[in-house]
Amino acid sequence: MAPTGEYSITAEEANSFLDNVLQMKSTEQWIKANKVAFLEEFIQSMEHHIPFQTISGIAIPDGKRRVPSAADIKADIVSKLGGVCYQINIFCWMLLRALEFDAQLVPSDGLYLQDNHVGIVINGLTGQSSKHLLEVGSSYPSRRLIPLDFEDCSPEYSDSYMKYRFVRREEGTIIFQHEINTVSSLACKYPELIEGEWFSFLFYHTRQSVSVSHFDKRMTKTFTEVGDLNVLTSLRCTAYPNGRLVCIKDSKLMLEDEEHQVQCFYFRSRDEFLQAFQRYFPQFSESMIRAAMKNVQFKLR
């Protein structure tokens, strides 16, 4: 039976979201026939329709910001506004539990900040002791379901323009590593996190099952303190429609081409910035975008 409580949705709400928002049809039969195939398509559909973005948080005036409630999270995801890992992965966790998957929240650390990322592990999917990582709440997501039964290092995965792998550490910690070229700007800032051609991006603590409240302290800083993780200082909106990157980041538009190369374009005016949202992310109102531009003191390159 699906759980009840504030951080839950019903099976009917879950199936409505899959059908009407993600455009996934006949999911009940799909889940019964092949859970792994269903989850793989769910990941792709989430990254197609639900953006990782900081716009809505920045648009809120300073002093009125707060950690999104369960109701906020549901509204933001169902309306395709998306959010950062907190909103996206918590909603996915609620949806998966409503569909009777054994999904748990796990704490994750990135760039020396404890609990700054919300992770999801699914238990018992392909066997009683199996564990899989499901990650759709990052601007650099793993674009597939990741089995965690590898010994020291997972296979190398290539999705979109990204190449990545996972490495096992002690005490149930799995490290999400990207090829340096994927996260070159981050790698330059944190050279000590480089191992050969790989950059250690996130550390998932897969043996720890936690509640939403576990993240309260860290997320209060993230959603209310300007400068924390750049969530309130950098205008970012990222999605992968049809498996290709579309990203607006401050004064830059990034589009992935057919050869999986990322082409960068710089906005020449504020109107071009607004037009890019109208074209690629029309679910954002002009008033919200203008408020975010004002609050971050948007500047062209």
Rank of each mutant, 00 (worst) to 15 (best):
L300A: 07
S130C: 13
S8F: 03
T238W: 02
P282A: 11
V296R: 13
Q278S: 12
L105C: 13
I146V: 12
L81R: 12
D72K: 04
R165I: 09
D76A: 12
L111C: 10
F52E: 05
N89V: 01
L235Y: 07
H117A: 00
T10G: 04
S251P: 05
Q23M: 08
M1C: 04
R268H: 10
C92N: 15
P155Y: 03
S139G: 14
V212H: 13
Q128V: 13
E156K: 10
I9V: 04
K299Q: 15
S108K: 01
A98K: 13
Q104K: 14
I194P: 00
E256W: 04
G57Q: 14
Q104Y: 10
F166C: 07
P107S: 05
G119K: 05
D228L: 10
P141V: 02
K299L: 06
S138T: 01
L81Q: 10
I122F: 01
L125I: 06
R244L: 13
G57T: 06
F277P: 11
E192N: 03
E100H: 15
Q104L: 05
D115A: 14
G227M: 07
Q114T: 14
A71L: 11
K25R: 11
T182C: 15
T224S: 10
D72Q: 08
Y112M: 06
D109R: 07
G124R: 09
W93S: 04
P191Y: 11
R270G: 11
D216C: 04
A70K: 03
Q104G: 04
C264N: 04
I175T: 13
C153L: 15
V106R: 04
W93M: 07
I120N: 15
V67S: 08
N20R: 13
R268E: 15
S287K: 14
M162T: 10
E135I: 07
V118L: 09
